[in-house]
Simulated assay, not measured.
Amino acid sequence: MDLPAILDAGRADAAADLLHRYYTQKLNSGHVRTGARFDTWAGGGDSPGAANRITADDLLALSLLGEDIKGPAVVGLLETKAPEIGELLELIPVTLELADVTGVEYVHVLGKESPAWLLWDIFRGYRGGQWRMGATKTSKLLARKRPKLIPIWDPLVARSIGAGTSLTQWEEWHALLTADDRHLVRHLAAVQDRAALPVRVSTLRAMDVILWMDAKQRGFRAAPGDDD
């Protein structure tokens, strides 16, 4: 994975401009893009009372990012698999940030058979689900529940930075965010300060938005099958 120039230290103003525009720029409709509401819709997916369960508002929040959740997945996530999902979410601290996960902790927090890994499989429909949900939708739902810990996997961004698969990207981002005494984390915090957003978002979400806006600006496009 190669970080694009937009995240260079000398381009903080350009990154802040992209971030600011995503959350404040009015489109041809006269409204700010719906994705700007994803983080805070219904108080956020990690808010008290909602953090350890999937809610209808979480699925509505995904629609703000252009994701359509099919009926079988809705029933499975909100009803059939709800007890199992709740138990796993309770094992993942709400306030834990990806950059704060130590190398020793990583395997227990995000490694194979960790609660987050098992949730990934459940959301995708791999563990007895009667549905199939793509990697992008799955990552967005996980990011909605744990925005400080789970990065969104977007095929457009992945193409622009040469990222690996959706699950290996967790490890790649963890390595980048913890490198050089968390330099990237501090840089993203400074960029967000300059962006002066209506509401502060997580480090991972700010990074995702900057990379997505930059990829769009550089002409990258997702291809059919990228979400598989």
Rank of each mutant, 00 (worst) to 15 (best):
S160T: 03
D228K: 09
A14S: 11
D17I: 01
G45P: 02
F38R: 05
L7M: 11
D121K: 15
A56D: 14
R144T: 04
K81W: 02
A222M: 14
A189M: 13
H20C: 12
L88E: 01
R127C: 11
H187Q: 01
V157G: 13
K70E: 13
A36Q: 02
R159M: 11
P198A: 09
L77M: 15
T24K: 09
W41I: 11
E79Q: 15
L184H: 12
I85Y: 02
R221P: 04
I161N: 07
T40E: 05
R200E: 10
T80S: 14
P151V: 13
A14N: 07
K26P: 12
K81G: 08
I85E: 04
E87G: 08
I85N: 01
R124G: 08
L78H: 04
R194V: 07
S160D: 13
T178W: 12
R132W: 00
L204M: 04
P155A: 06
H31G: 07
K137Y: 00
R124L: 01
V74A: 08
T34W: 08
L18E: 05
L110V: 02
T203Q: 10
I122R: 03
P224W: 12
G111W: 06
M133S: 00
T102N: 01
Q169P: 05
Q130N: 12
G30S: 07
A190N: 06
S202E: 13
W212Q: 04
S202W: 10
Y106L: 14
R194I: 09
L142F: 09
D121Y: 08
W212S: 04
I150P: 00
L7K: 05
L177R: 03
T80L: 05
E84T: 10
G86Y: 11
D68M: 03
P115G: 12
L64E: 02
Y106D: 02
T40H: 14
V185I: 13
L184T: 13
L211E: 09
M1Q: 02
K26Q: 15
L184E: 07
A189W: 00
Y106P: 00
V191L: 07
G162N: 04
K216C: 14
N52M: 08
